[in-house]
Nucleic acid binder design. Sequence first.
DNA 1: AGATTATGCTTCC
DNA 2: TGGAAGCCCTAATC
Length: 570
Amino acid sequence: MATRARFVHNSRRRRGDEESSSDDEQQQVESSSSDDNEEEEEEEEGPGQVVADEEEEPAAVESPSPAAGRNGRKGPITISLKKVCKVCKKTGHEAGFKGAVYIDCPMKPCFLCKMPGHTTLTCPHRVAMEHGVIPAPRRNTNTSLDYVFQSQVKGKIPMVKPQFLVPNQLECGNIKFHQRRVTCLEFHPTKNNVLLSGDKKGLLGIWDYVKLHEKITYDSVHSCILNSMKVDAANDGVLYTASSDGTISCTDLDTGLGSPLLNLNPDGWNGPNTWRMIYGMDLNTEKSLLLVADSFGFIYLLDRRSKTRVGQPILIHKKGSKVTGLHCNPAQPDILLSSGNDHYARIWDTRKLEPNSSLASLAHGRVVNSGYFSPRSGNKILTTCQDNRIRVWDYIFGNLESPSREIVHSHDFNRHLTPFKAEWDPKDYSESVAVIGRYISENYNGAALHPIDFIDTSSGKLLAEVMDPDITTISPVNKLHPQDDILATGSSRSIFIWKPKTGVDHTEERTSQKVKEYVYGSGSQKKANGKHDNSSDDDSDGGCDGKKKKAKKTRFTHTAKGKEKGKSKV
DNA sequence: AGATTATGCTTCC
DNA sequence: TGGAAGCCCTAATC
């Protein structure tokens, strides 16, 4: 009943079709042949309402009526004309939420696996707790290199898997800590309980998630998206950050004062054709080298100590295409993995870096959001691609022509989200567990939630899905703690900390309480280099600031309302 | 409450 | 080949 009110676009649509009655007929045929029985029955119930609707546009009612008798059905045909699928613009079905369940457009390929013939709801890859795995042949080269590397690696991987604890319980949250959506997260490697975060505006956040109130944001480090962070291995008070403003900054974490290590746009803004952005960055700790890649396909090497460039920029991905990420092999830091918008991930030896000199080129179906070597042995590769597949290569010195596995997973990101990246659990000695946020929602007790998935990359099995009824937004940014069983999540402008569930389950009250406590909390949010303090930061960010000016309680009320709204869907 | 907007890759001509 | 349209589960704002 109520759903009818939603079909707002029909009048525009009908006006467009007015001229061609044959077009109308086609649509009727389609709609009547559709097997959506529920819909049709519903339609029969409420002709009065329909008539009332159409009185506004009498001309439109007239034209389809001669054809109405043709299929032996009464009146409803006019109604089905009103229902236009927002995805394919055809009639007879509708895409969109029905309660907490999203109904796909049947005319389009599956939104999850991208194959035609079924929708997400019936996708074979959407089996509960087990995602689809596309097997690839396991090849072994049996070269001497193979042998040497295997023997090196074997000693490093213990046979007994340590107990795996999923941090699935929301511990605390820092609601709207950032001014825009969170784009990257990093645990401080030595100061335990400190989480570093970056956002789309270039804001750098530092938060002690145990003391809770110890938090600070620096807004002068970058002027736009903070894409990557790395704490200096030799000086843990120094943070390197890479940004879409085209700079690498070297920031003192205590003062927020930074100096640029690299500026790829020294002449300022001269249009998008010349503006260079930096997404990929990593540190070769052995050589004290900072590796940086821009949005035109080039890599730059920087000497961390002398703060100077080493050599010339080298093209490592298709000219003009963005390099989305860089990662140095943890076991052999000279071996580098790059991922790019040119649909490739590539392995390089940074000691002899030249164009077209990659050791391997890993083909993907679409843009590669990220690529990581496994955290201990470094002999596996995990990539996230916008074709909704996580790919795993089990052995980098084997045959890399095709991945060892492709795991179908929903992370086909909407342009307004931070790209999803599957990341290894650094604590998992077996190098199989990975974490990644999920794009499409699932119906959890009547609420459409977007969980954070723990995936066993060796089998494709979904080990755990982490979610909380209070978090209704998508969580594309996730980071696992290097030592503790803690997960940090960036979701919209907020960040959250998760821990394994222990003892008695008070989840519902406790998490809400924690989150609420913190939003209420009187923690002073300093801004070291800021022009204003948090309560008067008005520039450029428009609307949200009006609310900020109000008392904190107002903010909380606002948040709580949002939550209630989410729950009321039940 | 509904319209609007930020925003980036893909596709189409 | 390049530029413009268009896009399925956003999130926040007025």
